[in-house]
């Protein structure tokens, strides 16, 4: 069998994906129990994208995330304790409880924040790439966003600006087929968002977002090119969300269906983690037991994260006015 990616890298990607899956499933469960406030957008089903992309980056490369951002942060090396604590609104969370699910960030890992405004993070990644160019650091910036965000002005303005400036930024669209509850076909007249790259004179690439190996190898190639000044690029990862747009949506939508039946079938029947597992078993000497051990360790890590979050204190009134003016 042919395997161009090192086993260690594949296991690293697998570990990131499983950690995300366990985290998100747990977050969904405790949300359903009423333990969490606010909105909760899970990354279940899309793990191959975040993990594949971030495995191709250095620690000091930048990513900018979306409202569905836990997975991106975990993929970039984030601390699940601090993410979970943030979901609980605790002072030990990444943002000391001031951001919540939609605003997790870890600047020490180059994760410049999840973002509650659709498309709001895209220009921020362009700015990070601008810093990289100005400072000559060869760092790359990746902005994750969804198919819905590709209809925002911020996407079109940012990609054009980055193209003109030849900035080292990857516009990584995670096309899960829905902008909130609206299917892509009702929000745009094209099937491939990568086609939009042509309008800005940059390459547009499509990758199977259910295939972590394909995501990793594609992004790794482009990261190399971008470090040598050949940016930017638009990469479209075709993916499926197993969770809904937002947890609890069945209740607030009064159970109205919105998924396209054929798409929903694919989302249910395919699983990016299973895909990578099969790939590892077929192409490396990793065993079922090795992979099960990774699954169990990830599950334990998330159980510990919940304990950490639950046992952490809430912020106090004094915290209301910290982190304001510099």
């Amino acid at each position: 069998m042919n395997c161009t990616v090192a086993k260690e890298t594949l296991l690293d990607i697998y570990t990131r994906m499983v950690t995300i899956r366990k985290f998100e499933e747990k977050a969904g469960a405790i949300f359903a129990q009423g333990q969490l406030n606010g909105f909760l957008h899970l990354y279940v089903g899309e793990e191959a994208v975040g993990a594949g992309v971030c495995a191709a980056l250095n620690d000091d490369d930048y990513i900018v995330s979306t409202h569905r951002g836990h997975g991106h942060l975990i993929a970039k090396g984030g601390d699940v304790n601090k993410i979970m604590a943030e979901l609980y609104g605790k002072v030990t969370g990444y943002c000391k409880g001031k951001g919540g699910s939609m605003h997790v960030a870890d600047f020490s890992k180059g994760m410049l924040g999840a973002c509650g405004i659709v498309g709001g993070g895209i220009p921020i990644a362009v700015g990070a790439a601008l810093s990289s160019k100005l400072q000559g650091t060869r760092q790359v910036a990746v902005t994750f966003f969804g198919d819905g965000a590709s209809n925002e002005g911020s996407f079109h303005e940012s990609i054009n600006f980055a193209a003109v400036q030849k900035l080292p930024v990857i516009f990584l669209v995670e096309n899960n087929g829905y902008g909130e509850f609206t299917p892509q076909c009702r929000a745009m007249c094209i099937e491939d968002i990568a086609d939009r790259a042509k309008g800005y004179g940059i390459p547009g690439v499509i990758v199977d977002g259910m295939d972590a190996v394909a995501v990793y190898t594609t992004v790794a190639q482009w990261v190399e090119k971008l470090r040598n000044g050949e940016g930017p690029v638009l990469i479209e990862a075709k993916t499926h969300r197993k969770s809904g747009h937002s947890e609890g949506e069945v209740a607030f939508l009064d159970g109205q269906p919105y998924r396209l039946p054929e798409e929903e079938k694919i989302a249910k029947e395919t699983d990016c983690i299973d895909n990578l597992r099969q790939y590892l078993l077929a192409n490396t000497d990793a065993t079922q037991a090795d992979l099960d051990a990774i699954d169990q360790a990830a599950a334990k890590k998330i159980e510990d994260a919940v304990e950490f979050a639950k046992n952490s204190p809430f912020p106090t009134a004094e915290d209301l006015f910290t982190d304001t003016w510099v």
């Binding site: 600047f107 921020i124 700015g127 940012s158």
Partner: peptide, 18 residues
């Protein structure tokens, strides 16, 4: 002439040392 992108890029540049 892309005020949103430019204003946002400034934010991204500012949080990364510029």
């Amino acid at each position: 002439i892309s005020e949103l992108a430019v204003a946002g890029a400034a934010v991204g540049a500012a949080v990364t040392g510029s």
